[in-house]
Amino acid sequence: MSRLYGDPIEVWTRDGEPAQFVWRDRLYLVRSVLDSWVIAREWWKTGEGDPGERRFWRVQAGPGREVGSYELRYDTAGDGWLLMRAWD
């Protein structure tokens, strides 16, 4: 079962992929990238210039020994990261 969040997170990347992130004051180490995809933002829903895109990663990550699956999103137009979803 998954839960939706949409919480802002701080992410560190390595070779263009998330390597670790902080969510709710805990550091999560990314163990593996399960999937990634890109969705172009609709030009009519953005302001002037490049509408950017949303890049998604589904990762296995956790603080310490705990490991779970998480979906992270990076918005190129807003230069921000969100934790979108977590699986039990």
Rank of each mutant, 00 (worst) to 15 (best):
L34F: 06
D25N: 04
V38R: 14
G16W: 02
D7S: 10
S2W: 10
R41W: 01
L72F: 03
W57H: 07
V30P: 05
G80R: 15
R58P: 05
G62F: 01
D79T: 12
S36T: 12
G64S: 05
G47F: 08
R54I: 05
R24M: 07
E10M: 04
Q60I: 09
G68V: 08
A86T: 15
M84Q: 08
R24Y: 00
R54K: 13
S69T: 14
T76C: 02
V67N: 08
L29H: 09
E53T: 03
L29G: 00
R85Q: 13
E71F: 02
R58C: 08
D15Y: 07
R24D: 10
G6N: 15
F56Y: 15
T46C: 13
G16F: 02
E53F: 05
V30Q: 05
S36L: 06
V33K: 08
A61E: 07
V30C: 07
G47Q: 11
R54P: 02
E42H: 10
R3W: 12
R73I: 04
R41F: 04
M1R: 14
M84T: 09
S2P: 13
E42D: 15
F21C: 02
M84K: 06
S69Y: 05
R26N: 03
W23F: 07
V67G: 00
P18G: 06
V30G: 08
G47R: 12
A40S: 14
R14P: 00
T46I: 05
L82W: 07
D50R: 06
S2I: 10
W57D: 04
K45E: 12
I39P: 00
S32K: 13
I9Q: 04
F21N: 00
V11P: 01
R55G: 01
V59F: 04
G52T: 01
T46M: 14
D88L: 13
I9D: 05
L82R: 13
